[in-house]
Design a protein around this nucleic acid. Structure first.
Lengths: 237, 237, 237, 237
DNA sequence: GATGAATGAGCTTTCATTCAT
DNA sequence: AATGAATGAAAGCTCATTCAT
């Protein structure tokens, strides 16, 4: 009997890989909750019930753990974006999805987004550049989507790089300013307002038509938004 | 003896007040440069040439120094905004000024803005709320400006709170993502693109006219922008 | 009233200097007893009844404490040698004194000598060179004494550098091999044998006469030798 | 079955013995290079490409490895000395050989000699006594040689124990003070000077004749000295 | 025999905070 | 009002040693 025949594809993660991931996961949770500096290596090791020395078998030092934690967050972002930009959707629908998913992620991972803004500076320059590179890739994907919209005449020309950052930051704003926004808006409302501020005003007539048609699809994506934080007072506009 | 007769208005700052401010200023500089945790109380006291024990005569503890440092930054923001919203300007011109000044401050005080995002969480909840309150006031001022635009029919109705945050975050984006933006855009270009994304698309026909007329005034504000960072490759749109 | 008029000469050591010396002294004792690595900073601070943090106000790090400890030992050596080589004695008598004092120091500071052999390698290269430089100075002084003996025809020509090291090492041998020697010899006997091995065979006839005449003086120096370790079995020659 | 028939004499070393020796050899190399404390058990196991757990099958603990490492060094010394004292040579020639071989070993194994001085104190008292016992045996052999010289009237009476230590320490001096000596002397020169300081002055007339006759033999031994360190400035006497 | 994941005591070092002067 | 010596909790990191596999 050939065990693990297809192990190349469906790899059984090695013990080491599982540990690394286990530690990174715990680190993301604790760093996000308490911040990088106040969280001790021992906190992390206790979280997963191992000795503190073990962390150092899998990571260089505490900074290295932070790097991995931040990469893990960004990678989750990247993975979701890739799904958002499926060719099957037209570029306008993709744009709506990007916005919706961006906000959904910001909702689900508000702590992690905040962590990135708090702690990237605690890394060494080289590590920081790594993080910045991943963010740049994400922005580049959004930008391509925007440029597709413009190229196909669905959107009026706008500066694609700055607009891409507007899309990214809109989600981050939800995470960073949740304390001021979530008592008035649900994520769904926030996404909806975002479309009115970041997409609709820039569409051409044909773009507009696509947008209306894409309504359903985008709403599906929006449905992903976990309604964990129910707005206390709903007072839209 | 007529000492301090007019102290209510034109107060001669007491020695204590001067010390407090002196410490806060040094703290802003050092925290902004190195971050809150890595900066020691001794660093701050050395910066102003006093013994480190003296800090504790004027501040409860290190956190208290951070609180004052963050307040100092936000107060500077608030003061500038107050100037921006002078009644002499119409609401559209005021809006342009808000954007321009916001970016100018983000340029001049990028480190301080970054500090706020890094370190607010290091405060005690009560202190944090104080900071959040000041930010809310700033947003409220922007919002009033937007609502004035909408009420006077110069701007199409948009969600004023979210839009106000968009204005605030646009400046913060310049500070936070300078590493990605400043090699392609100057602050002036960034402000100009901001107007195309945050103001122009939302103006009514009459608002549009005001905007064009206000060109000069707004540009004056934009002139404040210190062109410290010259763009390496200029490639607008 | 002029207090501290002569403070330039008879300096009252500052608090800082006293602390530094106090720490160094404790470090010499503990490092000598237990060795550098097994002695903790806390051991040292406890020895003098202060908190362990205080050590770091006066020394860079643990290595720096070791450097000072070793320097303190060597400086004591140098100081004693300077006395040994007084011009009032002739060169032969000086040589006898060098040998006697060398052995006396080795007896009194056997632990410290051993420490130097154990722990010099634990220093950084630059620090190590400092230690080596001091030792070289000591050897140079012995060498000059030897060369004076040879130049004045009191001693037959021998290689002065290697012979100087023989003199130095003779004392070190007493410290390093005490476990094998002290049960058979007292320091006085050891010194006496040393003269028979390192001085007498190399003297010329005139040197010989000086040596015999200098007997008393040298013996005075030898008297300094603290007879702490009484030989268990005396079996000279 | 004739397995291990001659195992008493020509033993086929068991796997365990080979492992033990393999580990000890690696330990000597690493301890000598970096010192006992800074070398980790893992360093040693990596050096020979085995898991670190394996060390503990063959040694009690790290100290035990050090003990074996030091014994290995001393045993090598003892073995060489045994060859030096072959009865075929006369006692004077043997003495010359002792000196030459001593220095040759100090040259080839300077690091190991230094290790012994650095790390013997890191052993437990019982282990330390073992090391001291081996050294005493070596000294005893030298001493016998000296006593033979004296008994046969080739050498004037000197304290044989102290003189024996002088012979031993002369080699150790080369290892310990190489940094000060090797730029001025080659080992051969050092040995030659040693003869002038430790042998020649103590020979009787008949001893002198033996010494001159033994020139060749001694020189053969001296030839063993690996001229690895060429003196930069040669300035004998 | 052999491995290496896991442990945790123990160390160096930092720094906010106190307080005698 | 001001100082800076002193404290000690607390954290990161190492590594000898164990033991399930």
């Amino acid at each position: 009997m050939a065990v693990n025949k297809v192990s190349a594809d469906q790899r059984v993660p090695s013990v080491a890989e599982k540990r690394t991931e286990q530690i990174a996961t715990a680190a993301v949770a604790l760093f996000s909750e308490r911040g990088y500096v106040p969280t001790t290596i021992e906190d992390i090791s206790n979280e997963i019930g191992v000795g503190k020395g073990l962390i150092y078998r899998y990571f260089e030092d505490k900074r290295d753990v932070l790097l991995c934690a931040l990469c893990a967050v960004l990678d989750k972002y990247k993975k979701e974006y890739a799904l958002a930009l499926l060719d099957t959707l037209g570029p306008v629908a993709a744009l709506r999805r990007v916005l919706a998913i961006n906000c959904a992620l910001a909702q689900e991972h508000a702590k992690e987004v905040t962590l990135a803004y708090r702690s990237t500076k605690d890394l060494m320059p080289e590590q920081r550049h790594k993080i910045m590179a991943i963010e740049s890739e994400i922005v580049a994907e959004i930008r391509e989507c925007l440029e597709a919209c413009i190229a196909t005449g669905l959107m009026r020309p706008v500066n694609p790089k700055i607009m891409a950052y507007q899309f990214l930051m809109f989600g981050h704003t939800w995470a960073l300013k949740q304390w001021a926004l979530s008592d008035e808006f649900s994520v769904a409302q926030f996404v909806s307002e975002g479309e009115q501020l970041l997409i609709v005003p820039f569409l051409t007539a044909s773009g507009r038509r696509k947008f209306d048609a894409a309504g359903k699809i985008a709403n599906d994506a929006a449905a992903r938004v976990a309604p964990k934080t129910s707005p206390r007072r709903s007072r839209s506009r």
